[in-house]
Design a protein around this nucleic acid. Structure first.
Lengths: 138, 138
DNA sequence: GTCCCTGCAAACGTTTTGCACACAG
DNA sequence: CTGTGTGCAAAACGTTTGCAGGGAC
C-alpha cells in the first residue's frame, strides 16, 4: 500500500507542517500512543505544534479510517496506525507497553449473537512484560 | 457463590446505606453501567447518595476484585459485576447496549508472546443491535 | 486571494480529592 | 467512642471548541 502521507494527499487533505509531523509520529509498527505522547514527540520535532491540533488531526485520521482507536490505558485513549493487517494487542498491565500480535480471532456462535449484526472483534491480551516481571514488587 | 453483600461483610467491609444501594445497583446479569448511571439509579432509591461516594465505592470494589472495569463507551468507564463466569462482551456501536456472551477464548501462540506472562484476555464484539439495525439511518 | 488550518485559552465532561461532619461497629 | 465513610465543593484530569490570525493551495 502507498504510504499514509501519499494516501492523504490524494484525498485532497491539506498537508501542513504540523500534520506531517503528527502523521510521521504515527508511523511504524507497534505504535500505540496516547494524544499527549503524540504531542510530546511531535513538539520535539516541530515546537510550533499545539495539543489542540494533535487532537484535531488524530480525530480526523480516525474518521478517515486511517487510524484505529484502541483500548484506554490509564484513562487515555490510544491510537494505532496499523490498519493494514488484522491484529490484536498484548498489553503490560504494569507499564502499559503494548505490542501488536496475531493469533486467531474468536468467532461468536449464532445462538450467542442475540440478533446483533457482527462488525468487528477487539482482542486484548493483558499480561506482564519481561521488564516488569523482573522488577521488584511493591 | 455467596451474594456479593455477604462476601463484602465477611471481609470486614463497613456496610452503609449508600454502599448497600450501590452494590444492589451493580447486581444482576448484563449490568454494564457507567458511574453516572449507577449514581442516577442509586439516587432514585436513596436520594442521600453522592457521586463522589459512587466513584469511591466502585473503585474500591474494583480494587477488591469484586467488579470488573470494562471498555470505555462514549468516553465513560463501564463496570461489570459478573466476575463469576468468564465471558466476553457484545456491544452495539450505535446505542452502546451491551450483553455478556460466551464464546471460546482466543489463545496466544508462544511465539507471539514476546516473553510476556499472560494474565487475561479481553474480547469485545463490536456489532449493531436489532433495534439499531431497524432504525432509520442519518 | 481564498479557505482551511492553526495556536491559544476557555469550556466541557468525567473522575479525584480535601475537608468537616456523621454514623457503623 | 473511634475510625471510617460521607456529602459537598473545588480541583484535576483528558478532550473539545470558539475565535482571530496565518499559511497551503
Amino acid at each position: 500500500m502507498e504510504p499514509l502521507v501519499v494516501r492523504l494527499r490524494n484525498r485532497g487533505w491539506r498537508l501542513t507542517a504540523q500534520r506531517r509531523v503528527i502523521v510521521e509520529t504515527m508511523t511504524g509498527d507497534h505504535v500505540h500512543l496516547a494524544a499527549d505522547e503524540v504531542f510530546e514527540r511531535a513538539r520535539a520535532v516541530l515546537p510550533e505544534v499545539s495539543l489542540a491540533t494533535v487532537y484535531n488531526t488524530l480525530n480526523e485520521l480516525v474518521d478517515m479510517g486511517e487510524l484505529l482507536e484502541i483500548t484506554h490505558v490509564d484513562g487515555r485513549r490510544r491510537f494505532d496506525p496499523n490498519t493494514a493487517h488484522r491484529h490484536q494487542h498484548l498489553v503490560c498491565v504494569d507499564c502499559g507497553r503494548m505490542l501488536d500480535v496475531v493469533g486467531d480471532e474468536p468467532g461468536l456462535p449464532d445462538e450467542q449473537r442475540h440478533g446483533f449484526e457482527l462488525l468487528d472483534v477487539e482482542v486484548t491480551f493483558r499480561a506482564r512484560c519481561p521488564d516488569c516481571i523482573g522488577a521488584v514488587r511493591a
